[in-house]
């Protein structure tokens, strides 16, 4: 039992950090552009698929981890510049537009990549024991990379010019325009960074979950839940919510059936939405 709970705790944190990365991208885009990006799950999938091709080509997971997000970031820029830009001020319309983009990306990947799941080998295969069970070192590595990426994002937001601009736009868009901040450029880079974050988590999760064109669907819903609980636009809230939710799920699933646990947690989510629509950690 102790081993069960300690694995559940550790795994909850690791998985929570991966989910946090996905949710951060979604939330960053929402916080700035007020766009609910339904294609976010598809971008996560695209990152994993791109990584699969890169690994076939170069044989290195680490190269893929760097190049795949760059590629998806560029796709993100194209989506923002080409499609979202004109409808940015209509949140409901952007939901529908990104829903269409999701369909297009999924179908294109199905045509090119095929429908069967493919595998990305884990670059680290060591395990270490926890009581009578074992835990894969790769997951710790993934958690570690997630933390590095999140710290990078934090530094980017706090220390760089773009970061400052982004925060200014979040706080008061009108004022930001007045101060001469190139808001449209900020939007573009935000979308690029958000998409790249989705791709990063796609590449990182791929050795655990395998690559398939539909892999973004379930993840999208989970990411939404995290963003809501953490508070829309509240980045730190998303990280805390991601870890918290996956901890509760991990420990909870020791005791109840997963479908019922899901229904139960969705019901709680409804209550959160009604009582604190700004999220648990919103001000």
């Amino acid at each position: 039992m102790i081993s069960n709970i300690s694995i559940a705790l550790m795994n909850g944190i690791v998985w929570g950090l991966i989910m946090a990365l996905i949710a951060l991208g979604l939330n960053l885009i929402f916080g700035l552009l007020h766009v609910i990006n339904m294609a976010h799950g598809a971008l996560y999938m695209l990152g994993a698929v791109a990584a699969w091709y890169l690994i076939e080509l170069t044989g290195s997971f680490w190269i893929a981890l760097i190049i795949a997000p760059l590629f998806v970031g560029i796709v993100g820029i194209m989506i923002e510049r080409g499609l979202i830009r004109t409808i940015e001020d209509k949140p409901i319309i952007t939901i529908i537009c990104t829903f269409g983009i999701m369909l297009v990306i999924q179908e294109l990947v199905l045509m090119i990549f095929g429908g069967a799941p493919r595998r990305i080998d884990s670059p680290i295969t060591q395990r270490f024991p926890i009581f009578e069970l074992q835990y894969p070192a790769m997951r710790i590595m993934i958690a570690f990379i997630s933390i590095i990426l999140m710290s990078g994002l934090w530094i980017f937001l706090k220390k760089t010019k773009y970061g400052l601009w982004m925060r200014a736009v979040v706080q008061d868009r009108e004022m930001a325009v007045g101060l001469g901040i190139p808001v449209t450029k900020v939007y573009m880079w935000t979308f690029a960074v958000g998409s790249a974050l989705a791709a990063f988590s796609g590449v990182l999760a791929a050795p655990i979950v395998s690559v398939e064109f539909m892999m973004g669907r379930e993840v999208l819903i989970m990411a939404f839940i995290i963003v809501i609980v953490g508070g829309m636009g509240n980045l730190a809230g998303s990280v805390v919510a991601a870890v918290l939710i996956s901890l509760i799920q991990g420990v909870g699933s020791i005791f109840v059936s997963p479908s019922m646990a899901m229904v139960f947690s969705l019901a709680i989510l409804i209550i959160v939405l009604l009582v604190r629509p700004q999220g648990l950690f919103g001000e």
Partner: peptide, 19 residues
């Protein structure tokens, strides 16, 4: 085979050109 692809494209185009 990929009718959803066409539906997706139609949807995006309509939203952009004729919301």
């Amino acid at each position: 085979q990929a009718t959803d692809l066409v539906v997706g494209i139609v949807l995006v185009v309509m939203v952009l050109l004729a919301p």
